[in-house]
Amino acid sequence: MTDPSPAVLDVRDISISFGGLKAVQGFSLRIPPRALYGLIGPNGAGKTTCFNLLTGVYRPDSGTVALDGQRLNGRKPHQIAAAGLSRTFQNIRLFGDLSVFDNVRLGCHLRGSHSISGTVLRTSYHVGQERAIAERTFALLELFGLAGRSFEQARNLPYGDQRRLEIARALATEPKVLLLDEPAAGMNPQEKVELRALIRDVRDRFGLAILLIEHDMGVVMNLCEHITVLNFGETIATGSPEAVQNDPKVVEAYLGTE
């Protein structure tokens, strides 16, 4: 690393285009440990595409992504998750038929080792691991206030709970950086306030860096220490919430030109 300041997630100049459409162009971002960063922009600005590039769903045409000094380029999504980058989805992608409990348990999957023989023979390691997973899952559900609903099917949860369950599931993978895609979407004002506290709490408790996409300016401006604004795939502004809010380009992107 040539740069002196440490960054847990270091994105340099990634681009991707679909056909002729340049979806993301020259996106760079350096997130220090335990930071809370925001990514905003009008609809179709390429925010979710950025997440997909970071987590390996799409492969960038150019540029590099590094997590804690490890290069993530060319890795598959599950390898990137193993490296310590976890995410939630804009259009919630829970395992709907599985219980709330099992959803989070699946998140714990990553940090264990699961041999067929161990599972079939129920070796002591396997049993210990299942117990550890169960404990960890209960603790996480408790933290998110979902413990009481452990055995309901995930698809039957109210919307806000589903969003929080997704965060819990992502945390179960023990990430270093957590990417939240519109965590407040569909929540009522009360829930949004609670979500803000929850996200801060998660950051402090787990000591991880968080990057979130959000449309709700109240949430973003209140929560994030640093904001990047995308429009048409390009970064048009970056800086503290105040600086970004007053940037004429940002105002133009959101409100249009006179």
Partner: peptide, 12 residues
Amino acid sequence: EDEIASQAMGVD
């Protein structure tokens, strides 16, 4: 249930 979410949670 969801192959993409499964991958994102680290399942190979």
